[in-house]
Amino acid sequence: MSVFLSSPLMHNIFAGFAQGIIYSLVALSLVIIWQSTHVLNFAQGAMAMIATYIGMTEIDRGIGYWWCVIISVVVGMTLGGVTERVLIRPLYGKPEINPIVVMIGFLGFLEALAAAIWTSTTRNIAEPFSQIYFKSNGHLVFLSSFVIFQIVLAMGIMLSVAALFRFTKLGLQLRASALAPEVSRLLGVRVSRMLTIGWTLSAGVGAIAAVIIASGNFGLFPANMDGIFVASFIAAAVGGLESPLGAVAGGLIIGLTEQFIVAYWSPDVAPLGGIIILVIALMIRPQGLFTKNTIRRV
């Protein structure tokens, strides 16, 4: 058994799963925003990156790791809510190209701002758990405390989000506002507040993903979420952008695919792998693999 766990195959599966679950988390955050406001937030990664910079560089001042995580998430959520109010709200009812362009502008602004304040050099955040692989009977098992922390935290967040949407009053109102805004207003639901809450929640989820990424080997630099965003968008699009479950599944598919391409071919080809999967998925089901209704809202 331990020989099997030490095989290169298992190494790739563990690594691909760990990376994929980050994509799942970001993809989930994209789906939350898409469902509530029908905007694909191109600045999602950059907003999370800024939040991570503000929160995690507090470690330098001797504030403990977990407090910094909390600061990052709170900053991320605030940024999400403010962004919806200031940049997105004026664009409701405008052509769908307009919010895309604005959020791309915001992406560029945040990355330039981060580089201006914190430089473009990669920063390493002290990891909360060891990245050294476990050993069992002298064989390496390709799991470390950090990878387990990464997977457990990501899954915990996803389950909490699922529970929030499924079992709480707020979740019911969020879903109703996304599905039928006018009817929801007639029932007294404060829909515009729900849109802001949707962005806030989503940005919080994104910030956690960015914190995990920055704490690992990848480190923190202004463009560190670019690749993650692209892979996560593909994950969400494979799932159909409407389905939280599809986003999570899509993230794992992309993560594993990339890992295997990296292992057996070259890391430079990995980004192409995601595109090919998206193209195949679109050919099988243009509305997304996990979308129930056949009419795609465009």
């Binding site: 898409w34 905007v39 694909l40 191109f42 769908e96 190209i97 895309i100 791309i104 670019d226 690749g227 692209v230 968008f233 593909i234 699009a237 952008l241 980004p271 192409l272 995601g274 595109i275 998206l278 679109l282 465009v298």
Partner: peptide, 16 residues
């Protein structure tokens, strides 16, 4: 694809 899907797809292309 249209709108956001297309934008995301082309972004993925230029990133690759």
């Amino acid at each position: 694809l249209r709108g956001p899907y297309l934008a995301g797809m082309t972004l993925a292309f230029s990133a690759a």
